[in-house]
Design a protein around this nucleic acid. Structure first.
Lengths: 217, 217
DNA sequence: TGTACATCAGTGAACGCGCGTTCACTGATGTAC
DNA sequence: TGTACATCAGTGAACGCGCGTTCACTGATGTAC
C-alpha cells in the first residue's frame, strides 16, 4: 500500500535497469569505458543481448546514463562535504576519496573525451552543481589577487559568470574556486593515471600539500 | 657518399616506417587513440594490411612507438623553452602550445590510461627529461613553504627524489616544480577536454592567470 | 659481365572474434468486460 | 469468477561490420662468386 501508483511491472523494470547499470559500472571499473559491451552485460545477467534494448535505446544511451549517474554521485559527494562544514579542504578530500574508489569512473567524466560523443544538457546542469558546492564551501571574502594576469582574469570573470548558477559570490571567489578545481583535478588525474607511480613519493602527501597551499589565503 | 653505411633498403624502410607513423598520428589527431586501425592505415597507403607487419610487430608496438614519439616531441619543446630562458612561464606556454596543436596527442600521454597497456622503461626516461627541463627553468632559491602539509611534503621529497635524474636542486625546488606541473596539467587537460566550453570565459586568460600566480614566489 | 642464390617487401586468402543492432516470434503477465 | 484481449519482457536467428593477425606465396632487389 505504501508504494502508490507503482505497478509491479514498473518496479521490475526499474530493478532490471538498475542491475544493468550496476554491471555496466563494474565493467567500466574493471576495464574502462571503451570495454563496455552490451553483449557481455547480457551474458552476465543470463539473458540474451537484444533483451537489453527493452531498457536502453542502445549503447550510447547507456553510456550517457552512466555519465549522468557518475556526475550525480560526484555532485552529491561535493555537496555533502560542503554541508559538513569542512570548507574547501573538506571538499577536496571528499573528491579524492570519490575518485580513488573508482578511478575509471572519474575518467569517464574527466578523462580523454570520446570523439563522437556530445554531452546532453543534463550533465552540464549537474556539473554546475559541483561548482555551486565549491562556491558555498569557499571562504569569503577572498584576498586580492597578486599579479596582473590574475587580476585580469578576475575582471574577465565579472563579465563571464553565466556558469555560476546565480551564486552571489564576488568574481574573485569564482576565480578562486575555478583555480582550486583545476589544480585539484591536476594532481588527482595524474595520480589516478599512474604518472606518479615510478617516482617514489607518496601521492597522498603531495595532495595534502596542494590542498594546504590552495586553502590558505 | 655522404650517407655512409645506409643502404637504399634501409633508407626505404625508414621512410615507410615514418609514413606509417605519420598516418597513425593523423588518425589519432582526428579520432583519438582508440580509433587507430592498422587496416585503415594500410588502405590509406595503398598497401595491404599484413604488409604493415614488416614494420611493426603489431598494433601495440605501433602505439608504444607513437607514445615514445609524442613524449620525445613534448620533452624537446620543454627543453627548447627552458633553453630560451623564459623560465617556468616560458615552459608553461610552450607546453600549452604543444597540447593545443594536437589535443589527442596530449591525451595519448596524459589521458585515460589504457587498461592492459604498460609503458616501457624508455618513456619513463623521457618523462624524466620533462621534469629536468622544468627544474632547469625554475628559479632558485625557492621560498620557504607555508603550511605544515607543504613543509611535510618537501621533507618527504628529500627522501624520495630518485626521479630527479641527479639534479642538484633542493627539495623545495622539486616540490615547486612538481606542483607547477600538476597545476598546469589541471587547467590544460580540462580545457582540452572541453570542460570550459559551456562556461563562457576565455580559457587562455585562466591559463595566463594560473601561470602568473604559479610563477611568482 | 653474367649467373646462382639469398634477402625481403608486399600480396591475397583465410581465421576467428566480438561488436551493435534488426526482426519476427513466443509466452507470460496484466486489464477490461 | 471467467473469458477475450492487450501489453510487453525476452528469445534466437541473422546481418554486416571491421578488427588484428597467420600463412604460404610471388616477384623484385641486392649479394657473392
Amino acid at each position: 500500500m505504501a508504494e502508490t501508483g507503482v505497478t509491479p511491472r514498473e518496479r521490475y523494470r526499474a530493478q532490471v535497469r538498475a542491475e544493468i547499470m550496476e554491471l555496466a559500472r563494474q565493467q567500466i571499473a574493471t576495464a574502462g569505458a571503451s570495454a563496455l559491451s552490451l553483449n557481455a552485460i547480457a551474458k552476465q545477467m543470463g539473458i540474451s543481448g537484444p533483451a537489453l534494448y527493452r531498457y536502453f535505446a542502445g549503447r550510447d544511451e547507456l553510456i550517457t546514463d552512466l555519465i549522468k549517474d557518475a556526475y550525480r554521485s560526484l555532485a552529491d559527494a561535493a555537496r555533502a562535504a560542503t554541508d559538513q562544514g569542512g570548507g574547501l579542504p573538506g571538499v577536496a578530500y571528499a573528491l579524492r576519496a570519490w575518485a580513488l574508489a573508482d578511478p575509471h569512473r572519474y575518467f569517464l567524466l574527466y578523462g580523454t573525451p570520446v570523439p563522437g560523443y556530445h554531452a546532453p544538457d543534463d550533465v552540464t546542469t549537474i556539473a554546475a552543481e559541483i561548482m555551486a558546492a565549491l562556491l558555498d564551501a569557499a571562504p569569503a571574502p577572498p584576498l586580492p589577487q597578486d599579479g596582473a594576469a590574475a587580476a585580469d582574469f578576475t575582471d574577465h570573470l565579472e563579465r563571464h559568470r553565466s556558469w555560476d548558477g546565480g551564486h552571489p559570490a564576488p568574481a574573485a571567489t569564482l576565480h578562486r574556486v575555478l583555480s582550486f578545481w583545476t589544480r585539484l583535478h591536476g594532481v588527482l588525474s595524474l595520480e589516478l593515471a599512474g604518472h606518479f607511480a615510478g617516482m617514489g613519493f607518496d601521492p597522498a602527501l603531495l595532495f595534502a600539500a596542494e590542498v594546504d597551499g590552495l586553502s590558505r589565503p
